[in-house]
C-alpha cells in the first residue's frame, strides 16, 4: 500500500523554497524570482533508500512570511513533516530562526522538522564556519537549489523521519 505524507516548506520569502521543490520534483532551476502567494502543492513518489518504502510526498510550498505567527493554521492541518528554509546570504531570513523553531516545536511537537540553509552556491565554506554560532547549532542541511546540492537528501531524509515517526 502506498503511503502519502504531507510535507510543508516554511520560511521567509525569497529563500528558495519553490526552487528547492522544483529542483526535487522536476529537476529544474530558474534564476527568475516569482513570488509564491498562498500555496502550491506538488507531489512526488520516492522510494526510501534505507527502508525501501514507497512513499508519495505531497509537498506544500507556502508563501514566504517574515513572521511565522502569520502562517495560516489551515495550511498546517495534517502536516507530517516540516522543512524550515532560510537564505544563508540574507541574515534577515535567519535572525528569528531560534524563535521560529521554538514556535513550530511548541505547536507540532512530534512532527519531524529539518532546517535548511539554502543558496550554498553563493557562500563559501569559510562563511559557514564564521557563522557556526547560528548555522552549526541548527542547520541539518546546506543546500543549493541552483546546483542541486543535497536537495534530494533533504527530502528523503525528512521522509525517513516521517515514516519513523509514523511507525512509533
Amino acid at each position: 500500500m502506498k503511503i502519502s505524507k504531507k510535507i510543508v516548506l516554511i520560511g521567509h520569502f525569497g529563500v528558495g523554497k519553490s526552487s528547492l521543490i522544483r529542483r526535487f520534483v522536476e529537476n529544474t532551476f530558474t534564476e527568475d524570482y516569482k513570488v509564491t502567494i498562498g500555496v502550491h502543492i506538488l507531489k512526488k513518489e520516492v522510494t526510501l533508500p534505507k527502508s525501501n518504502d514507497d512513499i508519495t510526498l505531497v509537498i506544500w510550498d507556502l508563501e514566504g512570511n517574515d513572521d511565522i505567527t502569520n502562517t495560516r493554521p489551515s495550511y498546517l492541518i495534517g502536516t507530517n513533516g516540516f522543512l524550515y528554509v532560510f537564505d544563508m546570504t540574507r541574515p534577515a531570513t535567519y535572525q528569528s530562526l531560534e524563535n521560529d523553531l521554538d514556535y513550530i516545536k511548541d505547536r507540532y511537537p512530534n512532527i519531524p522538522l529539518k532546517i535548511i540553509g539554502n543558496k550554498k552556491d553563493l557562500v563559501t565554506n569559510d562563511f559557514i564556519k564564521q557563522n557556526k554560532d547560528v548555522f552549526g547549532r541548527f542547520v541539518d542541511f546546506y543546500t543549493s537549489a541552483k546546483s542541486g546540492t543535497n536537495v534530494d537528501d533533504v527530502f528523503t531524509n525528512l521522509a525517513e523521519a516521517v515514516i519513523k515517526e509514523a511507525k512509533k
Binding site: 500555496v39 502543492i41 506538488l42 507531489k43 506544500w60 492541518i77
Partner: peptide
Amino acid sequence: IHPFFESVHSA
C-alpha cells in the same frame, strides 16, 4: 481532483 485534497482528509 488535486493532491491538495490528499492532505485534507483529516479535516
